[in-house]
Amino acid sequence: MALAVSLLPESQLDALNAAYNASIARRRWRTILGFTIAVAALAVAAVGAEVDLGTFFGKIGNFFSYFDRIFRLDSGARVWTDPAEWFWGWQKWLGLLGETLLISYVGTLAGAVLALLLNFFAARNTAPLPWLLFVIRRFLEICRTVPDIVFALVFVIAFGLGPMAGVLAIAIHSTGALGKLFSEIVENVDMKPVEGVRSTGAGWVACMRFAVLPQVISGFASYALLRFEINVRGASVMGFVGAGGIGQELIVSIRKFYYSDVSAILLLIIVTVFVIDISTGWIRGRLTGGRA
C-alpha cells in the first residue's frame, strides 16, 4: 500500500502555521519572562549577599592553596609521607568520633520513638481528635523548621556544655522531621485491617498496634535509618557550639590554622559518613526487600 502524503491547501496551511507560531511565541515569551524575573531576583540577591567578584577572583587562589596547605605537615612535607605524624591524635579523634556516632544514635532513637508515639495523632486517617491533630502538627512543624544547631545553642545554656545538649537537639529535630514522614506513611495505609480490628471491639490503641503498625513498621525503620545518616553529619558540627563530638576539635584546628589536623579530621569524618551511608543503605535495602 503506497502512502501518499497529501499536502493541505495553502490557505489552510498558513492558518495552521500561524496558530503554531503564535503558540510557540507565547511559550517563548513566558520562558523569557520567567528567565528575566529569575535574573532580576538573583541580581537583587547578589547585592543583598554582598557578592564581591573582585574579592572572589582576587582570593580564589587562597581556596585552592588552602587545600594545598591542609595537606602539608608543619615540616612542609606532604601529609601522606608521614601518616604517624599526620594522625598524631588518632586516639583522641577516634574517641570523639565514637562520641559523635553515639550522639546521633541516641538522638535519632529518642526522636524516632517520640515520633512513633506522636505520628498517629498527626495522621488525618487515624487522629482521634481533630484539635489534637492541629496542635501536634504545628508542634512537629516547629521542631523541624528550627535547625538542630539552634536548639543546641539554647540547650548548651540550659543543660550546660557537653554532648547532652547535642543529643537533645538532635532528638527534637528528628522528632519533627520523622513525625511528618511517619504520619505521611500512616495516611497511605490500607484502612481495611483497621476496620477488621475495630469490628472485634478493639479500642483505638489496639487498632493502631495490630492494624496500622504492621503495615508501616518497615517504612518507619527505613526513614529512621535515613535520619540517622543525616544526623551523623549534623552531630559532626554540634561541637561548633559546644554540644559535644568531633566538631569541637575541628573548629579549633580550623580557627588556629593547625592545617594537617584539619585534613586528618575531615578525612575521618568523610570516611565515617561514607561507611554509615553504605551500611544504612544496605540495611534499608534489606528492610524494604528490594521494593524501593
Binding site: K59, I60, I254
Partner: peptide
C-alpha cells in the same frame, strides 16, 4: 561524595578563611 560528606557549616568556615567574614562566604 566527598564534597557532600562535609557539612555546610564546615564549608562556611573554610570560605571564611578565603573571602573573609560575611554573607559572601555563606553563598559559597
Amino acid at each position: 561524595d566527598g564534597v557532600r560528606g562535609i557539612d555546610t557549616l564546615i564549608w562556611a568556615l573554610v570560605w571564611i578563611n578565603v573571602v573573609g567574614l560575611g554573607p559572601f562566604a555563606g553563598v559559597l
